[in-house]
Design a protein around this nucleic acid. Sequence first.
RNA 1: GUGGGGGUGCCGGAGCGGUCAAACGGGCAGGACUUAAGAUCCUGUGGCUUAGUGCCUUCGCGAGUUCGAAUCUCGUCCCCCACACCA
Length: 883
Amino acid sequence: MNLHAIEKKWQKKWSESNVFKVKEDSKKKKYYVLEMFPYPSGSGLHMGHAFNYTIGDIYARFKRMNGFNVLYPMGYDSFGLPAENAAIKAGIHPKDYTNKAIANFIKQQKSLGLSYDWSRMISTCTPEYYKWNQYFFLKFMEKGLVYRKEASVNWCPKCKTVLANEQVHNGKCWRHKDTEVEQKELEQWFIKTTEYAEELLEDLEKIDWPERIKVMQRNWIGKSEGVILKFDVINEKGEKIDEISTFTTRADTVYGITYLVLAVEHPKVIEWTKGTKYEMKVKEFIKKVKKKSIIERTAEGKEKNGVFLGKYFINPFTGDKCPLWVADYVLYDYGTGAVMAVPTHDERDFQFAKKYDLPMKVVITPKNKKLKAHEMNHAYVEKGILINSGKFDGMENEEAKEKIIELAEKKGWGKKTITYKLKDWLISRQRYWGTPIPIIKCPECGIVPVPYKDLPVMLPHNVKFGEGNPLTTNKKFVKTKCPKCGRDAERETDTMDTFFDSSWYYLRYADNKNDKEPFDKKKVKYWLPVDQYIGGAEHACMHLIYARFFTKVLRDIGFIDFDEPFKKLFNQGMLHGDDGAVMSKSRGNVVLPEVISKKYGIDTARFFLISLASPDKDLRWSDEGIEGSYRFIKKIMKYFKNVKIGKSSKKIESKLNKTIKLVTEYIQEFKYNLASIRLREFFDSLKEEESKETLETFLKLLHPFCPHITEELWEKIGNKPFISLASWPQYDESKIDEKAEACDEFIENVRKDIHSVKNIIKLKKINEIKIIVAPKWKYVFFEKIKKILEKTRNVREILKELMKTELKTHGKEISKIVPNLVKNNNKIPKIILSQKTEVQALKENKEMLEKEFNAKIIIETTEESKELKAKQSNPNKPSIILK
RNA sequence: GUGGGGGUGCCGGAGCGGUCAAACGGGCAGGACUUAAGAUCCUGUGGCUUAGUGCCUUCGCGAGUUCGAAUCUCGUCCCCCACACCA
């Protein structure tokens, strides 16, 4: 039977027998393995996807065999722009496009042999799912976490919709790397993710995630502790006309403030200049700045521009009067949108001050040097001692910072504050293929939430694609009655960001068919949280933040009782094509699993993918490389065809137990590549006759990687299906016999030596092989060393110990060997066999060697070193003479 | 610029203080089998040597710690990835 047929056979059997279907079982420990669910793209999946899912499948199978009740589901993130765009292009309705794509995905995934519980499948574009998006939206609203606000928002001209901050990468749309995001003033729906900023940050400590993802999230949340300072704004005559606040983390530099800058978006900029001679210039400046793209405006190191506002403020610490400016380097949506400037101790302020010739005042200086403002080329940002700072002079700046904040708070000039870079989540989208936001706009009552009983708000099928938001083109959808007053009203036509869908899907798997509630709390309590999550790093600051946020909110409104959705996270590497670039349809370097499966079998492909490299690293597909795995699989098939079931040797038992130990550890730690090597090694040592147990264990160890052929062979050696449900082998430490393995290694060395001797003297045919095992005393010597080695591996100590022993009789030899030992200390073997053991091992393997070399073997032992032609210094090797 | 990860033989990639001239795979070379090819199996694959011992040079480059470094420390160069005027 060919490999392809075997795959089909077992995939069918698994499916028919519902092997991977699970339900809650309080007697069994659960384990939840989850891969980030895919967006079902029309182009189907390639080997890169196969690699992802294989990583999870191996883990799920491993845990299942280890007795866990394993939840391993699959679903589809099926709302989203690509479907809508593809639909527009090809003239198909997004729904049809998506459903077709999903059907194709399922077919492909099944043929990879993935052990999903398909009965739990979900698709986010179905009303059965998105109903609960709407439900949660309303719950969030009740909790006060949803609001509508006009704001400057990110707009992608290609997507024709607004985007959340997380979806803007380097000023460009996350879907269109070539499209600059524009800023538009629009009224939009937001979710208060910022309310959970602190917890999102703190709880990173609780979870077992790759450090780099945690770092990325920490940076994204961007906590900084500082103080908000309030300044009196005065006009040219010195009369107080207003106040302005700034945020700073460097309260220690307040005596060095020489001016203050506002962001161009700051409303005070217009307010203060209105009707003054500065108005024109300021307006012109704002216009010019707003024209620029985000990148142009915010890239670090860009030249800074600004305009004087004609107003001043008083620095309460010094009483100084300083000018107010507007500048393009100040971010409106961070802190207060205004910055106190200390040119001598902030590089940006320094550059700005130099350019516009603003005053500078040094307030911190290194201990051994006096800084002078006019001599500086850069701002001084290191630690130092305060000067020119009134009563704080001479204080270390870190200490001064605390004291100054105290003073500011006491005097009412400022307040200790924490700010975050994290912004609220903008969730409304002006596109069709998403969850309708369940809101009705009534001219009388205003914004009215759709009552729970009216959910779901169905996404209408008939809309016109093209200009603007397609939902507005369906009058039947838009026109409705106000649930409060019953008058004519209109529906919200914005849909939700699809990241809303993916923020809770992992909960729905626990109870995917529930139509009364989003999920049964008891079921979720049993299965959740996810024990092992698997996915790429690209979601570090998007999905992985939203999902964590969602979890915390659901906990607070009483749906769940845990804090973090994903206890452990594994980031797999990216699969690259033969050309070295990331495998993708657009690159044209994709390898299709079905093609490989036909030629080599999918087990071969799976084994190849995981043996290439550690799965957390990027790897490169190679058409040649897979041949090696193919050979291995074929060898296994052939071996099982011919193997005699009988008894296994002690040596094999030892190896087997060691292999169990190692492979188990390797899989546990996602070191699949090392597991594959160990399996190969072990397989190579199998003999023509082995015990059933040995063979079974080997198949079990191989099963997570190659599920199909192992099922087949499992059956072939007389077992009932399914190996998928068999229990993982346990190793017996006492059966691991290092000595037996050392013997094996010894024989292997002898074999290699015979080969090299044969090569060197270029003997084609050998009649006789004489193996002379070294003199006895050396073994005595090594026995001693061995004893010492048990105590220490430190060479110096070994030597010390050796001096104490009574090896005087062999003083000469020792004097030769010991320096050698010291020089090549790496040559100290871990296990030293005795002469007797070696001879015994040789005798046992005599027949095998004779057969291989087709020669007679003579084994000799000797007490005399002379006979060995003197030079030999490594007594751990026998001498070999060929005839 | 900041943070994270890397640089290993012809190639992919293990190893992360001693059994390291470096796992495992690929490639290449030689041999066995075969009429031949393929498949399969065996051997070799840094250099010099050579009755197997041994010696030299190698894990980006330079220095150091150690009896001993691919592995630890410092410096340096290069590559990748993320963040990017966050006050």
